[in-house]
Design a protein around this nucleic acid. Structure first.
Lengths: 200, 200
DNA sequence: AGAGGATTAGGACATTTGACCTAATATGTC
DNA sequence: GACATATTAGGTCAAATGTCCTAATCCTCT
């Protein structure tokens, strides 16, 4: 199956280019050039630009699912898993400073142009949201779990946006420390005083 | 000066369209159509697409400066002024849910395509950052003022991003309440225990 | 009122770019 | 060699940018 290998390469390069330049600014020729194949060959695998986009979103979804599954196997402590999520902004700092969050910037762009695949792109965010909710539930946060999940997800998007704009490593470090402290506080509170939602 | 009026109209419509569709997806024809003028007239005022972008960014800068100045006159209490900033996400909720943050989404797009005006767009974020820093300084936060400013700015970007993705009003309300509480706590802490930076 | 500059409409045209398509060729497999 | 699979090299077509020009109209000043 040589076709499958080529197809994968196309999706990989397209993923990178769409991340780096945005969907609208990424052309057939760009991707074909990056892969090193002709435009015609490209069309053999994907009949339209939207098809590539769908494939890229699908790949991102699968990649993130795998990532989350790995974290699930790494530790039994939900707090540790939440910390893994938080630390992505440090692990991927260089790319985030250059291109922002791959998920956030794509969903924003697709929402603006009212693209049909926008909903699919949102599923990646929803995947993170639901996964985080489950972690907070395991922590014993009960009804506040989903609010906490959105809080962390929102935090990550804000940090990514400012990191891209200002390229300020100290800012990222500070924010990570703060939210890690917050997460720990959430865990410690859930035992005895599980109400104060504003105790961030 | 009829030309000035026309020019302003062009910039206004261009501002709206670039906000709603993004810079890359907004064409000359789009803007000319929205204003209701001919293409020839259009080129009489702007010789290139980049020129319009610059004018739009300039307008946004001036608009925001005026907005901040107004808040400065509204209240002597820096905390109240910070609250004004925080509440933008509620005041502009409808548009944010549709198109995200005008400033954040534009800076992200321009950074990706490595556009020369990206730096100018970043100035709007810097304007907010510096203004917020001044408010926290007035609150007596000292060396933590700029970190607090970035924290609030980052918060607003995160909320805007998720608001656009999930269109969840309750989430926005919750986040606003939380950060308002945090801001108040920052103020109350500065009197006696001004160190705990993580006390968010 | 009229001269003259400023503004607007409208269109012709060159150029580029990108999405999309096709016919011919290559590659490998049986 | 036959056959399906994979790839290439071209070309078409529409849209967008950018340039230029001409003829109206509007405004202002005298």
């Amino acid at each position: 199956m040589k076709a499958e290998a080529t197809r994968q390469k196309i999706v990989e390069r397209a993923d990178e280019l769409i991340y780096a330049k945005g969907f609208g600014e990424t052309s057939f020729a760009d991707i074909a050039g990056a892969v090193g194949i002709s435009r015609g060959n490209f069309y053999y695998h994907f009949k339209s630009k939207d098809e590539i986009l769908d494939a890229v979103i699908e790949k991102r979804l699968v990649d993130r699912e795998r990532l989350l599954a790995n974290w699930g196997e790494t530790s039994d402590d939900p707090l540790k898993r939440i910390e893994c999520f938080i630390k992505i902004v440090v692990v991927n700092q260089t790319k985030i400073m250059a291109y922002g969050c791959p998920v956030g910037t794509l969903t924003a762009e697709l929402a603006k142009i009212d693209h049909g695949s926008g909903a699919k792109a949102n599923e990646i965010l929803a995947l993170f949201r639901d996964w985080l909710t489950r972690q907070f539930l395991e922590l014993g946060c009960g009804g506040e779990a989903s609010a906490h999940a959105l809080h962390v997800l929102s935090w990550s998007q804000g940090v990514a946006t400012l990191a891209q704009a200002f390229k300020d490593e100290a800012f990222v470090r500070r924010e990570v420390e703060q939210i890690l402290d917050w997460a720990e506080a959430v865990k410690n509170q859930t035992g005895h005083a599980p109400k104060s939602a504003t105790g961030r």
